[in-house]
Protein backbone atom coordinates (compact mmCIF):
# COMPACT_ATOMS: atom_id res chain seq x y z
CA UNK A 1 0.00 0.00 0.00
CA UNK A 2 1.22 3.53 -0.74
CA UNK A 3 1.71 5.30 2.59
CA UNK A 4 2.25 8.65 0.84
CA UNK A 5 -1.13 8.48 -0.88
CA UNK A 6 -2.85 7.34 2.31
CA UNK A 7 -1.41 10.33 4.20
CA UNK A 8 -2.46 12.65 1.39
CA UNK A 9 -5.97 11.17 1.57
CA UNK A 10 -6.09 11.74 5.33
CA UNK A 11 -5.00 15.38 4.80
CA UNK A 12 -7.58 16.11 2.12
CA UNK A 13 -10.51 16.89 4.50
CA UNK A 14 -8.35 19.45 6.37
CA UNK A 15 -4.88 20.29 7.78
CA UNK A 16 -3.39 18.00 10.44
CA UNK A 17 -0.11 17.70 12.32
CA UNK A 18 2.06 14.58 12.30
CA UNK A 19 0.79 13.06 15.54
CA UNK A 20 -2.81 13.59 14.47
CA UNK A 21 -2.06 11.85 11.15
CA UNK A 22 -0.52 8.87 12.91
CA UNK A 23 -3.54 8.58 15.20
CA UNK A 24 -5.98 8.78 12.27
CA UNK A 25 -3.96 6.20 10.33
CA UNK A 26 -3.76 3.75 13.26
CA UNK A 27 -7.47 4.08 13.96
CA UNK A 28 -8.53 3.32 10.40
CA UNK A 29 -5.78 1.22 8.87
CA UNK A 30 -3.31 0.22 11.56
CA UNK A 31 -5.17 -2.69 13.13
CA UNK A 32 -2.52 -5.18 12.16
CA UNK A 33 0.45 -2.83 12.64
CA UNK A 34 0.59 0.71 14.01
CA UNK A 35 2.45 3.31 11.98
CA UNK A 36 5.83 4.30 13.48
CA UNK A 37 6.25 8.06 14.07
CA UNK A 38 9.48 8.11 12.09
CA UNK A 39 7.69 6.88 9.02
CA UNK A 40 5.02 9.59 9.28
CA UNK A 41 7.62 12.37 9.40
CA UNK A 42 9.78 10.83 6.68
CA UNK A 43 6.74 10.55 4.42
CA UNK A 44 5.60 14.12 5.17
CA UNK A 45 9.06 15.38 4.39
CA UNK A 46 9.02 13.60 1.01
CA UNK A 47 5.52 14.92 0.21
CA UNK A 48 6.69 18.43 1.17
CA UNK A 49 9.72 18.15 -1.10
CA UNK A 50 7.51 17.00 -4.02
CA UNK A 51 5.07 19.88 -3.52
CA UNK A 52 2.17 17.61 -2.59
CA UNK A 53 1.75 19.14 0.90
CA UNK A 54 2.66 22.49 2.46
CA UNK A 55 3.37 23.52 6.03
CA UNK A 56 0.63 25.83 7.34
CA UNK A 57 1.69 27.12 10.72
CA UNK A 58 2.20 25.47 14.06
CA UNK A 59 -0.07 24.30 16.84
CA UNK A 60 0.78 25.00 20.47
CA UNK A 61 0.22 21.98 22.70
CA UNK A 62 1.50 20.73 26.05
CA UNK A 63 4.71 19.48 24.49
CA UNK A 64 6.76 20.94 21.65
CA UNK A 65 5.13 22.96 18.87
CA UNK A 66 3.48 20.85 16.22
CA UNK A 67 3.81 21.76 12.57
CA UNK A 68 0.55 21.49 10.60
CA UNK A 69 0.40 20.31 7.02
CA UNK A 70 -2.14 21.00 4.28
CA UNK A 71 -2.60 19.14 0.99
CA UNK A 72 -1.83 21.11 -2.20
CA UNK A 73 -3.77 21.04 -5.52
CA UNK A 74 -1.01 18.79 -6.90
CA UNK A 75 -1.52 16.50 -3.88
CA UNK A 76 -5.27 16.28 -4.52
CA UNK A 77 -4.62 15.41 -8.18
CA UNK A 78 -2.14 12.74 -7.09
CA UNK A 79 -4.61 11.13 -4.64
CA UNK A 80 -7.38 11.20 -7.28
CA UNK A 81 -5.14 9.44 -9.78
CA UNK A 82 -4.11 6.79 -7.21
CA UNK A 83 -7.72 6.11 -6.20
CA UNK A 84 -8.92 5.68 -9.77
CA UNK A 85 -6.04 3.51 -11.01
CA UNK A 86 -6.45 -0.25 -10.44
CA UNK A 87 -3.70 -2.03 -8.51
CA UNK A 88 -1.72 -4.55 -10.52
CA UNK A 89 -2.78 -8.00 -9.33
CA UNK A 90 0.07 -9.54 -7.34
CA UNK A 91 1.02 -13.19 -7.71
CA UNK A 92 0.97 -13.81 -3.92
CA UNK A 93 2.30 -17.14 -2.71
CA UNK A 94 1.90 -19.38 -5.74
CA UNK A 95 5.35 -18.79 -7.19
CA UNK A 96 7.07 -19.73 -3.90
CA UNK A 97 4.87 -22.79 -3.42
CA UNK A 98 5.35 -23.86 -7.04
CA UNK A 99 9.11 -23.57 -6.59
CA UNK A 100 8.99 -25.68 -3.41
CA UNK A 101 6.89 -28.39 -5.06
CA UNK A 102 9.09 -28.56 -8.15
CA UNK A 103 12.27 -28.62 -6.06
CA UNK A 104 10.83 -31.39 -3.85
CA UNK A 105 10.03 -33.44 -6.96
CA UNK A 106 13.45 -32.75 -8.48
CA UNK A 107 15.29 -33.81 -5.32
CA UNK A 108 13.13 -36.84 -4.56
CA UNK A 109 11.55 -35.31 -1.46
CA UNK A 110 7.85 -35.95 -0.64
CA UNK A 111 6.13 -33.17 -2.63
CA UNK A 112 2.68 -34.21 -1.44
CA UNK A 113 3.78 -33.53 2.13
CA UNK A 114 4.88 -30.03 1.10
CA UNK A 115 1.34 -29.42 -0.17
CA UNK A 116 -0.32 -31.07 2.85
CA UNK A 117 1.78 -29.11 5.34
CA UNK A 118 0.98 -25.87 3.56
CA UNK A 119 -2.72 -26.78 3.37
CA UNK A 120 -2.85 -27.43 7.13
CA UNK A 121 -1.08 -24.13 7.83
CA UNK A 122 -3.46 -22.24 5.54
CA UNK A 123 -6.48 -23.78 7.22
CA UNK A 124 -5.10 -23.06 10.69
CA UNK A 125 -4.66 -19.41 9.71
CA UNK A 126 -8.16 -19.36 8.19
CA UNK A 127 -9.63 -20.63 11.49
CA UNK A 128 -7.76 -17.90 13.37
CA UNK A 129 -9.05 -15.20 10.99
CA UNK A 130 -12.59 -16.60 11.22
CA UNK A 131 -12.48 -16.41 15.03
CA UNK A 132 -11.20 -12.83 14.81
CA UNK A 133 -13.94 -12.01 12.31
CA UNK A 134 -16.68 -13.45 14.53
CA UNK A 135 -15.53 -11.34 17.47
CA UNK A 136 -14.77 -8.20 15.48
CA UNK A 137 -16.55 -5.16 14.08
CA UNK A 138 -17.31 -4.48 10.41
CA UNK A 139 -13.77 -3.24 9.68
CA UNK A 140 -12.29 -6.44 11.17
CA UNK A 141 -14.75 -8.53 9.19
CA UNK A 142 -13.89 -6.87 5.89
CA UNK A 143 -10.13 -7.08 6.48
CA UNK A 144 -10.36 -10.73 7.58
CA UNK A 145 -12.60 -11.56 4.61
CA UNK A 146 -10.00 -10.18 2.22
CA UNK A 147 -7.31 -12.39 3.75
CA UNK A 148 -9.66 -15.40 3.90
CA UNK A 149 -10.60 -15.13 0.25
CA UNK A 150 -6.93 -15.04 -0.77
CA UNK A 151 -6.12 -18.03 1.45
CA UNK A 152 -9.09 -19.87 -0.04
CA UNK A 153 -7.70 -19.24 -3.53
CA UNK A 154 -4.32 -20.61 -2.41
CA UNK A 155 -6.04 -23.69 -0.98
CA UNK A 156 -7.78 -24.35 -4.29
CA UNK A 157 -4.45 -24.11 -6.03
CA UNK A 158 -2.92 -26.54 -3.49
CA UNK A 159 -5.74 -29.03 -4.09
CA UNK A 160 -5.50 -28.70 -7.85
CA UNK A 161 -1.73 -29.16 -7.73
CA UNK A 162 -2.08 -32.20 -5.44
CA UNK A 163 -4.44 -33.79 -7.96
CA UNK A 164 -1.95 -33.13 -10.79
CA UNK A 165 1.18 -34.02 -8.87
CA UNK A 166 1.90 -37.26 -10.76
CA UNK A 167 1.63 -35.39 -14.05
CA UNK A 168 3.95 -32.66 -12.75
CA UNK A 169 6.42 -35.24 -11.43
CA UNK A 170 6.52 -36.82 -14.90
CA UNK A 171 7.37 -33.47 -16.51
CA UNK A 172 9.95 -32.49 -13.88
CA UNK A 173 11.76 -35.82 -13.98
CA UNK A 174 11.60 -36.18 -17.78
Amino acid sequence: MSLGHTILGLLEPGPRHGYDLKRAYDERFGRARALPYGQVYATLSRLLKNGLVEACGTEQGEGPERKRYVITEAGITDVSRWLTEPESPASYLQSTLYTKVVLALMTGRPAREVLETQRAEHLRHMRELTRRKLAGDLADQLLCDHALIHLDADLRWLELTASRLDELAGKVRA
Binding site: R127, T130, L148
Partner: peptide
Amino acid sequence: DMRVAAYADREVVVQDGRTREPG
Protein backbone atom coordinates in the same frame (compact mmCIF):
# COMPACT_ATOMS: atom_id res chain seq x y z
CA ASP B 1 -16.17 -24.71 0.92
CA MET B 2 -12.96 -24.06 2.88
CA ARG B 3 -14.16 -20.68 4.10
CA VAL B 4 -17.15 -22.42 5.68
CA ALA B 5 -14.89 -25.18 7.04
CA ALA B 6 -12.76 -22.51 8.74
CA TYR B 7 -15.61 -21.96 11.22
CA ALA B 8 -14.95 -25.47 12.60
CA ASP B 9 -12.49 -26.57 15.31
CA ARG B 10 -10.99 -29.24 13.07
CA GLU B 11 -11.54 -31.00 9.79
CA VAL B 12 -11.97 -34.55 8.58
CA VAL B 13 -11.44 -35.22 4.88
CA VAL B 14 -13.43 -37.91 3.07
CA GLN B 15 -11.83 -39.28 -0.07
CA ASP B 16 -13.00 -42.37 -1.97
CA GLY B 17 -15.16 -43.39 0.98
CA ARG B 18 -12.31 -43.25 3.50
CA THR B 19 -11.59 -40.61 6.15
CA ARG B 20 -8.37 -38.90 7.10
CA GLU B 21 -7.69 -36.16 9.58
CA PRO B 22 -4.92 -33.82 8.40
CA GLY B 23 -2.47 -33.12 11.22
